[in-house]
Amino acid sequence: MGTFVMRWAWLIVGLGAAAPSLAANYVPLPGGSFASVIAADNKTAPAQIAPFRLRTEPVTNAEFLAFVTAHPEWRRDRVASVFADGQYLSHWASPDTLGADALPRQPVTRVSWFAAQAFCQSEQARLPTWYEWEFAAAADAHRPDARGDPAWRDRILSWYTRPSNTALPLVGGDPDVHGVRDLNGLIWEWVDDFNALLVSGDNRDQDGADKLRFCGAGAANLREKENYATLMRVAMLSALKAADTTNNMGFRCARPK
């Protein structure tokens, strides 16, 4: 009963978010012990995730325009080239105008990790870690962890198999059990530790043979075919450098509890 009431509460909050003047919404997620596709010890250990708050929606073009207006050093014509590549916000009509190819309620894309991080700081937040993001994305409308349901995986895989030659939908998909929207099926999203996903601090200075060893251990998780969908996201994040931007890479922010 309590969950039911809570869910309606989030729905109402979510509707309120449609008005762009309101501040972004963050909802609490419990965290806890979580069986990630990337084992915490490169073997089988679950990840331990502290309670955190997550933005209910990805950052939109309108929100990012407000950010670059307040912080002009992040305009595409002023950003330092080490922080963003040549495609940064290139679909906007001008450095301070969205235009026809960037609707206000579309998720902002073609943003670098550096820019995403700066945005989150501007609203007293940070990028979520991979574990936080993966934990949140495991939910569906009814369950906090729907990963065992083929429908959950098929929804993700069907998004992967569509080319991105058409305009992105607007944010505002159906909320999941936590009240979070659009984690799967809209865009890729930056995470704070995107470039360290298969590397733990202890292993970083090991030589080739040991790399293969722990990478092999990481691969052991792939016996669960359900993990394919999530590992494709890991592969995408692994392909990027922090200044890179792509047509589909956006972000949302997180805060500590």
Binding site: V199, L212, C215, G216, A219, K241
Partner: peptide, 21 residues
């Protein structure tokens, strides 16, 4: 398949960063 899958992820992530550099 598992090994090659793992190695590709691994090579991409483990060797630090990419290609271009």
């Amino acid at each position: 398949t598992i090994l090659s899958f793992g190695c590709v992820l691994a090579l991409a992530a483990c060797s630090g960063k990419p290609a271009g550099d």
